[in-house]
Amino acid sequence: MSTSAITPVPFGRRIKRFMADRPLVPLIILLVILVVILQILRPGIVNERWIANTIKFAIPLAILAGCQTMTMLTGGIDLSVGTVATMSAFIMATQIVNQDPAIAFLLAMMPAVLIGLVNGIGVGVFRVHPLIMTLGTSLIGTGCLQVYQRTVIASGAKIPDFLAWLGTGVTPIVGFAFPNALLLFVPLAALIVFTLARTGFGRLLYAVGDNERATRLSGVQYWQVITALYVTSSVLAGITGLLYIGLIKAPSLSLAEPLVLPSVAAAVIGGTSIFGGRGGYTGTIIGALILTVLTTLLTILQMPEGARRILFGLIVLFVTAAYLRIVEER
């Protein structure tokens, strides 16, 4: 990380630069403030059970926000994650009835890979705007799921015990209830952080998003990076779907759809620039936690779903505009 001290700069700019360099500190402060407000509004709500619950609900959001983080690093976005997660969850729940779990898992991941591939080719080769492209594939995916639902309507669905255990279960360790989902999430998050920081692929994601022309002149082939990226994103979304069905336990055709907007907002709050080239996964994780706590808070305040969406929209707009100012002042 950088510790730059070239010339004395005004206090305001120093704050801005600090925010740009270490977005984690203000984010953690914000998270703590939200928890404190919650505790004041409902004394006693913040307890062990509440923490475990919050983490359980934050994890699927955090993984989907990871998809957004990675795609946003390249200046893209992946709006098909909701559909992909729903598809893999639904297929898993229906195929497990009369299939081997391993085969059901492979079947569940197939549409994820396929949609990721189509997204990647559309964005990387044909240069369709990622937003339009992923919106389109998610529409097609939803259609396919509806057709699929007809074919399996007779056989019914069940939630595999393992997924239920992973999604909702807790394991007491030294007197504290650790959600089992952390078993999946911690290695996954570590892998994402490592990929972004220490692998060639991660480097390219940042570089492509920062300056595609520069990467081209350095010999990077854009379509390769983008295709690999969107397939990765889709696979992550598929895994999230499996985890989420274990948490929600009710397969439906719009299972993960409500997570899409918050996943974008979480990545933006976490300091990832929607223009690409800047950000990281640790910020996103805290962003997901903030949004989960915020949702609890808004529920307690009885704020309707509509107001929540407005809030998410305004957050995205303001954070982006503020970010643009910070960058321009340099």
Binding site: E305, R309, G313
Partner: peptide, 26 residues
């Protein structure tokens, strides 16, 4: 005014308008 690209502004407005629609009729 913000000089944020059109695609981001209208995306944010998509969220906002959707939310507003839900407020009018849920």
């Amino acid at each position: 005014v913000t000089r944020v690209p059109d695609i981001v502004v209208t995306l944010a407005m998509l969220f906002v308008l959707q939310g507003a629609a839900l407020l009018v009729l849920d």
